[in-house]
Simulated scan of single mutants.
Amino acid sequence: MSLGPWQLIIIALVILVLFGRGRISEMMGDFGKGIKSFKQGMNEDESAQAKPTGSIEGPAVDASPEKQPGKTADRTD
């Protein structure tokens, strides 16, 4: 069973009567804002992945007790 043009017109009129023209336009405006926000978020995500993080690494540090200044290694001779 398919919907013909007259059935679609009747459904549209019933929706218009139930919600009113102002409410439908408000919902469509909110829907458009949501899509715009989603696209903007996707573009920000793609640009964040393309940019390097720019982290600066210091020299490698050996944490062994023999090489730490001011500490003596426990040796058993």
Results as ranks from 00 to 15, higher is better:
residue 14 V to Y: 02
residue 15 I to Y: 02
residue 65 P to L: 13
residue 32 G to P: 00
residue 57 E to A: 14
residue 67 K to E: 10
residue 8 L to G: 03
residue 18 L to I: 15
residue 1 M to G: 06
residue 22 G to C: 00
residue 28 M to R: 09
residue 54 G to T: 11
residue 53 T to S: 06
residue 67 K to W: 02
residue 33 K to A: 10
residue 22 G to T: 09
residue 53 T to C: 01
residue 30 D to L: 12
residue 12 A to T: 11
residue 33 K to V: 02
residue 11 I to R: 10
residue 8 L to C: 05
residue 15 I to K: 05
residue 19 F to G: 01
residue 75 R to F: 12
residue 21 R to S: 15
residue 70 G to N: 12
residue 23 R to V: 01
residue 24 I to E: 03
residue 16 L to Y: 08
residue 40 Q to E: 14
residue 22 G to R: 14
residue 24 I to L: 15
residue 51 K to I: 00
residue 63 A to P: 03
residue 11 I to V: 14
residue 36 K to P: 00
residue 64 S to M: 10
residue 42 M to S: 07
residue 25 S to T: 11
residue 46 E to H: 03
residue 75 R to T: 13
residue 12 A to H: 07
residue 18 L to Q: 09
residue 3 L to P: 00
residue 70 G to M: 06
residue 61 V to R: 05
residue 3 L to M: 07
residue 74 D to Y: 08
residue 52 P to S: 05
residue 60 A to L: 10
residue 28 M to K: 07
residue 75 R to K: 15
residue 66 E to L: 08
residue 34 G to S: 13
residue 69 P to V: 04
residue 57 E to F: 13
residue 5 P to S: 06
residue 34 G to C: 10
residue 55 S to I: 13
residue 22 G to N: 10
residue 48 A to M: 04
residue 33 K to E: 10
residue 54 G to L: 08
residue 29 G to N: 13
residue 64 S to E: 10
residue 16 L to E: 12
residue 32 G to L: 06
residue 3 L to V: 03
residue 73 A to R: 13
residue 3 L to H: 02
residue 61 V to I: 15
residue 13 L to P: 00
residue 60 A to I: 12
residue 19 F to V: 08
residue 68 Q to T: 12
residue 18 L to H: 10
residue 56 I to Q: 14
